[in-house]
């Protein structure tokens, strides 16, 4: 599949500190890419480098198949963005802001302003000055501004900040619609896992400037398989029996307390029966599925296992 954005060993240093180091990320055409990471992980800096606001210290960025140079700017006409937080000319009304945006972008279909305002539910507030807007409304207006010119690539930095639950759902639907109907590619950053999980096709996890993992949602669902967890006082014996008698290879002993069985084909009753027959005391046994959150906590903790 064609890539809209590619970065190659991208690094940015601010006053001797690496804010982004060696990031190679790939955003495919037509997907929603969720950019996940704690505060200060380098998400905004990455986005600023993609829009050429900040110049990389080393590494390359390729957008729409073209390499970015410090003075390239034509590619910006095919993008819609909110970086950090939505800023507007406060003294102008919402509509004036969008009209100004269209003029600067060289986009002359004025009908699209109404469409965009309607999409984010701001059609009645078009005549109000932006000064009086709440953060949630600014966020919506920012999204409206980004999509009026129908760009191919949308970059949203924390777009759900300040939105109420209903608003979050609406915006989520807008994002899906943009992706499906207009074929736009979206890059959305957030530190809220639940949000990203619900809309993203691919997730990139960044921490302390490093891209820890880049993975599609489908792959994640495969990786976060279910397992059976046994709590027993004699783990080594239990493990031995499981491998020896039941030919299970995919087991893991954790902290000498838990045994996890990742093999899917075996029934829980059979495990219980075999262990009891071999005099292993079972304190508890149950089926578990590691949640997506567990998965990311693992990734964020350097791939180490919790507990």
């Amino acid at each position: 599949m064609e890539h809209i954005v590619r970065t190659n060993r991208l690094t940015k240093t601010f006053q001797g500190q690496e804010v982004v180091s060696n990031v190679s990320m790939n955003i495919k055409k037509g997907e929603i890419y969720g950019f996940l990471g704690p505060n200060g992980a380098g998400k905004t800096t990455m986005m600023k480098m993609m829009t050429n606001l900040v110049k990389p210290t080393s590494g390359e960025i390729e957008i729409f198949g073209e390499k970015l140079t410090p003075d390239s700017y034509h590619f910006l006409g095919r993008m819609g963005t909110i970086i950090e937080y939505p800023v507007f000319y406060d003294k102008l009304t919402a509509r004036e802001n969008l009209e100004l945006h269209c003029d600067y972008m060289g986009y002359y279909n004025k009908k699209s302003i109404d469409e965009a305002l309607e999409l984010v539910n701001l059609i009645d507030t078009g005549k109000k000055k932006v000064k009086s807007f709440s953060l949630g409304m600014k966020q919506r207006l920012g999204i409206a501004r980004a999509i009026t010119t129908k760009p191919e690539l949308l970059i949203f930095d924390e777009p759900i900040n300040g939105l109420d639950p209903l608003g979050i759902k609406e915006i989520r639907d807008v994002f899906r619609m943009l992706c499906k109907e207009y074929g736009a590619t979206l890059l959305i950053s957030s530190h809220i896992l639940g949000e990203i999980e619900q809309i993203a096709d691919t997730i990139g996890v960044i921490q302390s400037g490093r891209l820890l993992r880049e993975i599609t949602m489908a792959e994640i669902h495969e990786e976060t398989t279910n397992y059976i967890e046994i709590i027993t006082s004699d783990c080594s014996k239990a493990a031995y029996i499981l491998t020896d008698k039941l030919q299970l290879n995919n087991i893991k002993v954790i902290d000498n307390q838990y045994v996890r069985i990742y093999d899917q084909h075996i029934a829980q009753s059979e495990i219980t029966k075999t262990l009891v027959l071999n005099d292993v005391v079972i304190d508890s046994i149950h089926k578990r599925s590691s949640s997506l959150e567990d998965y990311f906590m693992q990734v964020l903790n350097g791939g180490g296992v919790r507990d």
Binding site: D71, I83, E84, M105
Partner: peptide, 15 residues
């Protein structure tokens, strides 16, 4: 100061 310059510099116009 008000960061509106980031909006301006993200237009396809030479800075």
């Amino acid at each position: 100061n008000s960061k509106t310059i980031t909006v301006l510099f993200m237009y396809p116009i030479k800075r």
